[in-house]
Design a protein around this nucleic acid. Structure first.
Lengths: 251, 251
DNA sequence: CCAAAAGTGTTACGAATACACCCATGA
DNA sequence: TCATGGGTGTATTCGTAACACTTTTGG
């Protein structure tokens, strides 16, 4: 054990982790993705997916990597939430965490526990096991942030891989903002955006009128939304720490 | 030298720093506060005030402490900007930094270089020495954030310790948002807020009509603004990591 | 009396709100 | 045929934007 302690510093260094708050919307309700810890401390308890930032990767890379390793979720657009650095937030040693959050469609991702996670599971946002460390605080902060973004006008289309119906989007907005939005006004507003385009496909899986499907003009959507919000999005193969600041240069 | 390397870890740990982007508005122009480094690396070059997070303090505490130590600026309301973690951003070792930003009145603070800073100085935002590390990127990101906040409706009153005139505020908004705002509409809007109250004092220090001074109902201002923005403010004696999350205590 | 900045009122437009009925489908 | 959810139009309100002249002071 002593043998392995080979990294020496003149001053004490904190460990740094990246944690991911992944919200899911399956068309019916809001969910949150937690993992069952497969290692100590708190083995067997639930926690946010995440883990230590390696010495040769950015915090964004760590977040993506850990999320994929522990839950098999990949290719989502995450945003930085903030840093949580209470001195005693981890019993092992001083750990500072950088939290990220994202909103995805659970159905687009086969959730499989892996690596340090015994399992990974979606829970209802209304009823999930209280996670360990200060992860409950982080979830609360992430949800508050999500809510602020939606209330400030974020459309939340980054979660849809492909087609969607306005009524799905309506339900999502109702759930997130916790306001009862007028359905007619919502339809009007959404269809007025130039990045939301009607297709001639319809979807019918319930006993009622089939819903019209819309597609997203991703280019237009991204350019309009990146300007007004600080949505830093990154994917597996992006060099994100750079991109974060390239907003002017790009496109 | 070997003797001092007494902190050992099983895995490599990054160092963590907190850096502060302090914008100043003196009633005429926007400034930025930089320090001249008094230690290697880059001794003699300019950089953002900031430094290493101690093992027993939060990143917020580190930001406040370093700012005070290096520039004598204290008691400002800072917000977390984000984490910058490019692997090679510091030549010494792997350093992850948490950036904060604030807007203050330079005249309220006697800027004195101290500690690791040979000197501290306000520069015009239009013409300042390019700082070392990736601090230029951080400044750009902070300014973008400040601009977003103002454009989204932040009033920016947190920088005024006491009284202010609408024309001062007007100039500030013009400078930050880079838009030419209609002066009449601006006056109307500002005086309509219930947290901006007219006093019967006037201020006259230039050859023209003296300007009416207004005062801030800090309670109302804070409560209204903290809801719509994620302005995490903290002062020297606050336990901020907690406060940050206390806003949504229980549903 | 002139320059320089402070202060003020009205109209116009557009976005957000409030509100109710018909349609298509599967059971 | 009916229960369920999808889809649509219009009037009102409110905040934002456009617009120019008078006032006060120091030089």
């Amino acid at each position: 054990m002593e043998e392995k302690e080979i990294y020496k510093y003149e001053y004490p260094h904190p460990a740094v982790t990246a944690d991911c708050v992944i919200f899911g919307f399956d068309g019916k309700s809001l969910r949150i993705l937690l993992i069952e810890r497969g290692v100590e401390p708190f083995k067997g308890s639930w926690a946010l997916p995440g883990g230590f930032v390696r010495i040769d990767e950015t915090v964004e890379e760590a977040a993506i990597r850990e999320l994929q390793e522990e839950t098999n979720v990949k290719g989502v657009y995450m945003s930085q939430l903030g840093v949580f650095s209470k001195v005693d937030r981890d019993p092992r040693e001083r750990v500072i965490t950088v939290a990220f959050y994202a909103l995805v469609k659970p159905t687009d991702h086969d959730v499989i526990g892996g690596d340090d996670a015994a399992s990974a599971q979606w829970f209802s946002l209304d009823d999930y096991p209280i996670p360990v460390f200060d992860h409950e605080q982080i979830i609360k902060a992430a949800y508050a942030q999500l809510q602020r973004n939606f209330r400030a006008g974020n459309v939340g289309l980054e979660m849809f891989e492909d087609k969607f119906s306005i009524s799905q989007l309506y339900l999502l907005h109702s759930l997130v903002t916790q306001k009862d939005i007028d359905r007619r006004n919502f339809y009007k507003k959404m269809t007025s955006y130039d990045y939301i385009e009607p297709t001639n496909e319809k979807m019918s899986d319930t006993p009622h009128k089939p819903s019209q499907l819309f597609s997203i003009d991703r280019m237009t959507y991204d350019s309009e939304l990146k300007e007004s919000f600080n949505l830093i999005r990154f994917d597996l193969d992006e060099k994100t720490d750079d991109d974060k600041l390239k907003t002017n240069k790009k496109k």
